[in-house]
C-alpha cells in the first residue's frame, strides 16, 4: 500500500468522499478504493474516539475537581446516608464515579470500534480494514 500513499494524502476531500460513497454501495473493486475507504473510516473512528474522551474527561474533571474540591463545601448542606454530601464525595463518592467512568468508556469504545470495523475481536485480529499506517510503523 505504500505506492498509494501519495493519492491518500491528497488534500481533495471531495474525491475521497466520492470513493467512500461508492465503496459503501459496491464491493471494493480495486486495491485503491479499499485503501481510501479505510483511511476515511479510520479518521471517523478517531473523531468518535476524541468525542468520547471529551465527554468522559469532562465528567472526570467535574467529579474530581468539582465535587471533590471546588463545591465540596457547598454540597455539605445535602446528606447521603449520614454523610454530608461534599464530605462523602471526598471520602468515597469520587472513587465510585471513577470506576463507573472507566467501564462506560470500555463499553462505549467497544461499540464505536465495532461500528468502524477497527475492533480487536477474535475474528478481527489483523483488522477488517488494515489501517493506512500499518506498514510504516514497525521498524
Amino acid at each position: 500500500m505504500n505506492q498509494n500513499t501519495d493519492s491518500n494524502h491528497q488534500p481533495d476531500s471531495r474525491g475521497e468522499a466520492y470513493h467512500h460513497d461508492e465503496a459503501e454501495n459496491l464491493p471494493p473493486h480495486s486495491h485503491h478504493d479499499e485503501e481510501t475507504l479505510s483511511e476515511i473510516d479510520v479518521q471517523a473512528y478517531w473523531r468518535a474516539n476524541v468525542k468520547v474522551l471529551i465527554v468522559l474527561l469532562s465528567s472526570w474533571a467535574f467529579v474530581s475537581f468539582g465535587c471533590g474540591v471546588l463545591f465540596s463545601n457547598w454540597l455539605d448542606q445535602f446528606y447521603i446516608g449520614g454523610f454530608p454530601l461534599g464530605f462523602w464525595f471526598t471520602q468515597q463518592g469520587t472513587m465510585l464515579c471513577f470506576v463507573a467512568i472507566i467501564f462506560i468508556y470500555h463499553i462505549w469504545m467497544k461499540k464505536i470500534e465495532r461500528d468502524h470495523g477497527v475492533d480487536d475481536d477474535e475474528d478481527n485480529v489483523e483488522g477488517r480494514l488494515t489501517s493506512q499506517a500499518d506498514t510504516g510503523a514497525k521498524p
Binding site: V42, D119, V125, G127, R128, S131, A133, G136, A137
Partner: peptide, 11 residues
C-alpha cells in the same frame, strides 16, 4: 504513520 497505527485497536 506509527502514530496513526497506535490509534487503531485492531492488529
Amino acid at each position: 504513520d506509527m502514530i496513526d497505527d497506535i490509534r487503531i485497536p485492531a492488529g
